[in-house]
Design a binder for these strands. Structure first.
Length: 504
RNA sequence: GCCGCGUUGGUCAAGGGGUUAAGACGCCUCCCUUUCACGGAGGAAUCACGGGUUCGAAUCCCGUACGUGGUACCA
């Protein structure tokens, strides 16, 4: 059997959303599981929708996810070029369109978009298909006499090439996820294959490029299923069904209310794109998982599990484990609703199981953006690991650890006041004096010292711990108090106690 | 409208003729901790509906409903 080759074929029109990344991921996992190649092909046949920077953005996202293409416009390869606009320049698509015309599987159509628009208005369910192609004044090489057709072409009349869908046949295909799927040809329309500007449409381009690039398995979103019969026909006419890749139409990822849109992100407060995307056309910024504080390991893990599972109870997978265990027949056929709570759980788990290396840079950047300069990296990492259990998203490190670097601005006095007594106040006042005398400022010393004085004052140490915490942290959270005191140092600890005493 | 695809707790899901219908997220209770988490123990909550087939259906078949996609010289 020939080497497995799969492709991800995005069009550079904007951000890469969850569904797109999952499609890439399944492509990639499938290929790597089979020791095959993963190819990225840019489908930029619609020049009106081209967005500057979108292509680079897609590669940036893949890189962040840890998905490295074997072939692409950026990575090179033996089946280039990998941009359809460049392939069009080489006349690749035209020749196949011509072949189809010659063999009677396609025809010229001279109707302008405006004319078709008019017809659609008149006939509600109009389709350019076998029922209408020689009626309603449609002008094409099936309805017009031969000499008029050649006349129009000679005069340079713009035309498109449409596929000639045969009558009364059943077109079926085997989908790796859904099994046999079939369509009646009477309801399939004669899709445009080559546009008036000479560019192929997706329909012609996928088939031709998948053939030329020797793609063995084609994964795409479920939204392509209705046009699959057109592709099957094209394969049959052009290259033979025995050469056709195996298809897999992936289920959709849904949002809280129906299909997932980038609007859902703003509406429900979760990212839908892999990375921040700034659309130069609309000046709109759409938030990404990366910037929201997700670890790439968690991101691909949660996406992989949205529609696939190993059949075991394992939910946390490294990329390597996913590659090893991925199998297409464990992919669901039904759409999955994206659950942000579960997504956060995945990230939380990954933060807990990863070392500080995987998030320290991003965490550091957040501290510095908030005006905190990190001078001691080793200490910074120690602090990060101290609070990691409490962090779901990377920015949480800031809120969970800021008090290590800065005196809290406000103290949650309400947490202390109800049980605050004159005795406790005296305790802390005297403790300051004792602290001044401590030579080796260490966890055990501090804790012993604290308990000693508490016992002497006949107060339970536990009753003093919460006030002490509020003094140092400002609120009811964080690692053990003495760990904090040890970390921030003598001077700062005393300063915070004094400061708090004035407020309680 | 027509066509395609889908439907197991709120969400992700295992199970594919006989199970007390796994597990995870979230929610609730308790334990641990005189903080918050982590960790641990419990709890509430599900086979869309209606017909078949069968001794027996969440599982097979047919309808219906609902969801979702397509119906462009967009991908």
């Amino acid at each position: 059997m020939s080497k497995v080759r799969v492709r991800f074929a995005p069009s550079p029109t904007g951000g890469l959303h969850l569904g797109g990344v999952r499609t890439v991921l399944y492509n990639y996992l499938f290929a790597k599981n089979k020791g095959g190649d993963f190819i990225v092909r840019i489908e930029d046949t619609d020049q009106t929708r081209f967005v500057d920077g979108a292509e680079q953005y897609i590669f940036d996202c893949l890189k962040w996810c840890g998905i490295e293409p074997d072939e692409s416009p950026l990575h090179g390869g033996n089946y280039g070029p990998y941009r359809q606009s460049e392939r069009k320049e080489q006349g690749i698509y035209q020749q196949y369109a011509d072949q189809l015309i010659k063999e009677g599987h396609a025809y010229y159509a001279f109707d302008t978009p405006e004319e078709l628009e008019q017809i659609r208005k008149k006939i509600p369910n109009f389709q350019y298909n076998q029922h209408y192609r020689v009626a309603f004044g449609l002008r094409n090489s099936l309805s017009l006499p031969e000499n008029e057709v050649s006349n129009l072409i000679e005069k340079g009349t713009p035309y498109v090439i449409r596929i000639n869908i045969p009558k009364d046949i059943i077109i079926s295909l085997k989908d790796m996820i859904r099994g046999e799927v079939s369509f009646d040809s009477w309801q399939i329309d004669d899709k445009v294959l080559l546009k008036a500007d000479g560019m192929p449409t997706y329909h012609l381009a996928v088939v031709v490029d998948d053939y030329l690039m020797k793609i063995t398995h084609a994964f795409r979103g479920e939204e392509w299923l209705p046009s699959a019969p057109v592709h099957v026909l094209l394969w049959k006419y052009l290259f033979g069904l025995d050469k056709m890749p195996e298809w897999a139409h992936l289920p959709l990822i849904l949002g809280p209310s129906g299909k997932l849109s980038k609007r859902d992100g703003a509406k429900y407060g979760f990212p839908v794109f892999a990375m921040n995307w700034f659309d130069p056309k609309t000046n709109e910024l759409t938030e990404g998982f990366k910037e929201k504080g997700f670890l790439p390991e968690a991101f691909i893990n949660l996406l992989a599990l949205l529609g696939w599972n190993a059949g075991t109870e394992q939910e946390l997978f490294t990329k390597e484990e996913l590659i090893e265990q991925f199998s297409i027949d464990r992919v669901h056929s039904g759409g999955a609703k994206f659950d942000y709570e579960k997504a956060k759980w995945f990230n939380h788990e990954w933060i807990k199981k990863s070392g500080t290396d995987s998030y320290k840079l991003q965490a550091k950047a957040i501290f510095e953006a908030n005006g905190i300069t990190i001078t001691d990296d080793a200490k910074f990492e120690t602090i990060l690991s101290l609070v990691a259990d409490r962090c779901t998203l990377i920015p949480d490190f800031y809120t969970q650890a800021i008090f290590f670097f800065k005196t809290p601005e406000t103290l949650d006095a309400d947490a202390v006041k109800p049980k605050w007594t004159e005795e406790k106040k005296i305790f802390f006042t005297e403790w300051i004096d004792k602290l001044q005398l401590i030579g080796n400022w260490e966890l055990v010393t501090l804790e012993d010292n604290f308990k000693e004085l508490a016992t002497a004052k006949n107060i339970k140490p536990g009753e003093l711990q919460l006030p002490f915490r509020i003094m140092l942290v400002g609120g009811k959270f964080g690692p053990p108090v003495f760990v904090i005191a040890a970390a921030i140092g003598k001077e700062e600890t005393i300063k915070r106690i004094k400061n708090a005493l004035q407020q309680f």
